[in-house]
Amino acid sequence: MAEQKVSIRYAQSLLDSAVERNNLNDVYNDVKLIVSTLKNYPELRRVFINPTIRPETKTSILNEVFKEKVNGDTISFLNFIVEKSREDLLFSIMLKFIQLYNEHLSLADAEVRIAFDFSEEQKRALKENLEKLVNKKINFNYSIDPQIIGGFVARIDDTVFDASVSHQLEILKKQFIEGGASLN
C-alpha cells in the first residue's frame, strides 16, 4: 500500500516536470522503452530489487543500458530514484507513469477479445461507439478468443463491455436455473 503511494508520487513528479519542460512525448516513449526492457529482461529487474548490490553499481548499470537511448531528463530521473534508494520501485513507478499519462491526455487502453477477426469497417464502428461512450481516446488491443463464440468483450480499466454470445448464453442459463426469487 505504501509502495503504491510512493510510486504515484514519483510518477506524478516525472509527469509534471515533463509537462513543464515540454517533452512529454519523448519521456513517454522513454518510459515505454524502459518498461518493455524490464519486462523482457527479468534479471535486470532483479538487480534493482537486490539490496546487496551497491547503489553506484546500479547507477552505472542504468547509465550503460539506457544512456544512449533515452533523453537526458529521463536518465537524470532514473539516477534520482537510485539516489533516493527507491530503485526497487522502478518498475511500478514506470507503470504508474503510463497510467497517469493516459489520464492526463484522456487516453484509455482497451483489451478487446473477439471470436474471429473484425473487418476494418467493424473496428472503426466499435472504436467510434466506445470512444463516445467513455469520452476518451482509446488505444485498441485486439486478441482472438474463440471461446466467446461471437460478438466482442472489451475491457477498459475495470469496466467490461460484454456483447459476446457466450455471456448471453450464461445469462440465459442463469435465468432458467433461478426462475423466481433470487439474488438478482
Binding site: D157, D158, T159, V160, F161, D162, Q168
Partner: peptide, 25 residues
C-alpha cells in the same frame, strides 16, 4: 444488447475474506 459491468481480480482469499484489485467504482 451489450452488458456493461465492472470487474476486479482476486488478489488474496482465505478465512472468508477476499482482497480484490480493481472494482474501482
Amino acid at each position: 444488447e451489450v452488458d456493461i459491468y465492472d470487474v476486479g481480480t482476486v488478489l488474496q482469499v482465505g478465512d472468508g475474506i477476499a482482497r480484490v484489485y480493481g472494482l474501482s467504482k
